[in-house]
Design a protein around this nucleic acid. Structure first.
Lengths: 276, 276
DNA sequence: TGCTAACCTCTTACGGTGTAATGGGTTAGG
DNA sequence: CCTAACCCATTACACCGTAAGAGGTTAGCA
């Protein structure tokens, strides 16, 4: 279930996101009627906890309400719709990300540290990947996390436009890598059969149906036999180990590419400086 | 809505995927009863068409059935569950991808051509991104597309393990880039307000709520003002143009990184060859 | 020809979703 | 104390995937 950001009244959404919990209703407003038995924070906390534990599919208005001992509809007093709740969950989770990295040792080590944190973050909150990234939520922590990535390159000479794209590519890269793991953890069979069992059953069925596999996909077969993942003793599922390795290796490749970009940019800057 | 691959009886699924439409029931079986009024192909076609036109959310058993003039339940005669139908849609769509690229001019131009095709493919079928990538479908076209990517590097000297990771990173990269566009096209507001309008309304609300934005996110602001996307005359939505530019630039960076990997691999191969 | 068994399809039903509408209980200010 | 505002629950509606069962259709056999 990909959940789209609610696009209700933007103003109320923004007020909720930017910690205007007190200022949602214009502060000086009188308020007869019973006190609120809940708070937006409580609701978001409960929803995040639920999503962490049982996946985004388990998060419904009713289930969140049940956790808090209310009906599902009660939440609509605090939050305009489920979309906004998801926005709040998203931005709240992002708040966990570190915002400072040491760039004194150069950008490369800083980027690696950031990527590791980002990676771990998604593993802690896999459901975040299901929140639509099309239209940013524009919450405080989303901006903070973006700001943080940009500051990784603080001392580096790069055209702003190129830097923007590099930053985007880095974020995309981590997201893409971790998605495989995250989804396999949330898959319905996650509790039940393991990756290994699934693969075994599935590829057995495959072999039965497609006897000429090796001929049809010779390049794949060659890659698989030559470059089999070494059976690293620890017992993390196959898919996760594979993805982790790909993350590490892919990051190095990407960093080399960024390095090349920086070198090029420096050369062109020097060239134009020399020309003037 | 992220849809997970059905994990029903693997054998039947595999038979369906690998075009064993005739061989689903063991060929020599007698068959009293009415002829099938539909075929798996028809159903998958209709579902893909629906998904292309109105997004994955519009694809339900009932809606697909309606397109074909049947009830939703009628489809269960042909397909064990919705999960398998999604698998079939996925593999069928992948069948559109080209499988041959000219590597005679070097790997780099071939990879660029492939990336463009892959990109365009996802734009044609944005819903494919919503199909879980955790547990591959293992259909013929999925393997074919992977095989194709591997063959882009046919003449290149790279350790198999590294090549596998590079290939994975490339695929992840394109997926990640296109996701932004794809989701923005499928977003519920896609028919209604445009990207520009949304951004305008949303950031107006933002400015009202957060007056100290520029101080809190100075790095972002600097990036935004210095590296503003040039207003390229054509009228594609802001988000799409931005994403496309990021795709192009990011790909170049990534290719530079791959180049570096190849150089390194060659050096290490030469080194070890010289050492022995 | 008529029967039977297998098969296709539809209807109904169940538990789930998000949320609009309604109404009752609680509490502050006048 | 009354009233108006507010919190919350109930009910209801339209959707979802699919289990269960009923009824029509057809091939093969007697």
């Amino acid at each position: 279930m990909v959940v789209y950001a609610g696009q209700g009244e933007n103003k109320r959404t923004m007020a909720l996101l930017w910690r205007a919990h007190g200022a949602v209703q214009d502060a000086d407003k009188v308020s007869p009627g019973p006190k609120q038995g809940l708070s937006v924070d409580e609701i978001v906390d409960a929803a995040v906890e639920l999503a962490d534990a049982e996946g985004m599919n388990a998060v419904s208005m009713r289930t969140v309400g049940k956790v808090l001992g209310r009906s599902g509809m009660a939440l609509y007093t605090y939050v305009p719709s489920k979309g906004e709740l998801v926005d709040l969950m998203y931005d709240r989770a992002l708040g966990e990300l570190p915002t400072r990295y040491d760039v004194s040792q150069g950008w490369r080590s800083a980027v690696v540290a950031w990527a590791d944190d980002y990676w771990a973050f998604f593993l802690r909150h896999p459901w975040v990947l299901q929140v639509s990234s099309a239209r940013p939520v524009l919450g405080p922590n989303e901006f903070a996390s973006m700001d943080t990535v940009v500051r990784l390159f603080d001392g580096v000479e790069l055209p702003a436009l190129l830097l923007r794209r590099i930053v985007g590519t880095l974020a995309n890269f981590v997201r893409g890598c971790v998605q495989t793991i995250a989804e396999s953890r949330q898959a319905p069979g996650a509790t039940g059969i393991s990756d290994e069992e699934w693969w075994y059953a599935r590829s057995a069925a495959l072999a039965a149906v497609v006897p000429d596999f090796a001929q049809r996909y010779s390049a794949l077969i060659r890659l698989e036999t030559e470059g089999a993942t070494p059976p690293d003793d620890d017992c993390t599922p196959y898919m996760e180990r594979e993805s982790t390795e790909q993350f590490k290796a892919g990051l190095e490749v990407l960093l080399d590419g960024i390095d090349a970009s920086i070198t090029k940019a420096a050369a062109s800057a020097a060239g134009s400086a020399g020309a003037t």
